[in-house]
């Protein structure tokens, strides 16, 4: 590859992670470099380590060995992991909105606590983002009063309010009813178009085709295939990839 080491915003080197005292191997020597502005989609069967990889990138999960370098900072050596996390937005399968806070406060709280912004500034940013994700009228509602699709869009706005350099999506549409998937994917497409660096664990092949620069197929804690969407869908190299695709593309 032509890019130098420094132009990668995420560098993962030989990452290993096991659970249950080593009995379950989640990541088995993963290396991965993501340049700035790239949209990467990770697919693979359940238990293949996709989510664990994502959670290692912002250190919600601490790897057993290997290094993660985000924006030039080695995560195992940084003094304050929270500063790094603020630069990495994360969207969860289960939304994980704060049910005791209004939609507006969900987006405002971390800006105030972590970014130390004034209430006024934080509210302005929050309202702008709610407009961007298409639900400005829900600012005063509580998460429990929203549909799944609306909740996930609030979750995206909440992550974006920190003005992160990277966005991680952990199966953002898997918990949604089918008719709500599109509204969330539209927001993600818009983000991709704006040049956000995104790592997305998802089986939405339409999104992968339209927005992804790169698609990674993982199995049993290893990267099996790492290529462009066209290449993967037209002519996958590996037998294991073909089997998997035949199961999910029906």
């Amino acid at each position: 590859m032509g890019a130098t080491e420094d132009s990668y915003i995420i560098q993962v080197k030989d990452l290993r992670k096991t659970f249950h005292h080593g009995r379950v191997v989640a990541l088995d020597g993963i290396s991965l470099n993501v340049p700035k502005g790239q949209v990467t989609v990770i697919i693979g069967p359940s238990g293949s380590g996709k989510s664990t990889l994502l959670r290692c990138i912002n250190y919600l999960e601490e790897p057993d060995s290997g290094t993660v370098i985000v924006d030039g900072m080695v995560l195992s050596e940084v003094e304050n992991i929270n500063e790094v996390r603020a630069e990495i937005g994360m969207v969860f399968q289960q939304f994980n909105l704060f049910p005791h806070l209004s939609v507006l406060d969900n987006i405002v709280l971390a800006q105030r606590v972590v970014r130390k912004r004034s209430r006024q500034e934080a509210v302005e940013i929050a309202l702008d983002l709610l407009k961007k994700v298409g639900i400005p009228e829900k600012a005063d509602a509580y998460p429990g009063q929203l549909s799944g699709g609306q909740q996930q869009r609030v979750a995206i706005a909440r992550a974006l309010a920190m003005q992160p350099k990277i966005m991680l999506f952990d199966e953002p549409t898997s918990a949604l009813d089918p008719e709500m998937i599109k509204e969330v994917l539209d927001v993600m497409l818009e983000l991709a178009r704006e040049g956000m660096t995104m790592v997305v664990v998802s089986h939405e092949m339409g999104f992968a085709r339209n927005a992804a620069d790169r698609i990674i197929f993982m199995d049993a804690g290893k990267i099996v295939e790492d290529t462009t969407p066209e290449q993967l869908f037209e002519a996958p190299k590996e037998q294991r990839t073909r089997e998997f695709l035949s199961k999910i593309l029906h």
Binding site: N58, R85, E87, I88, Q94, F98, V113, V114, M162
Partner: peptide, 18 residues
């Protein structure tokens, strides 16, 4: 309280005590 709440808060950069 579902552990996802803690993860979401930490992923936004909050400390454990925040």
């Amino acid at each position: 309280i579902h552990h996802g709440q803690m993860e979401a808060a930490r992923s936004l950069g909050m400390t454990y005590f925040q």
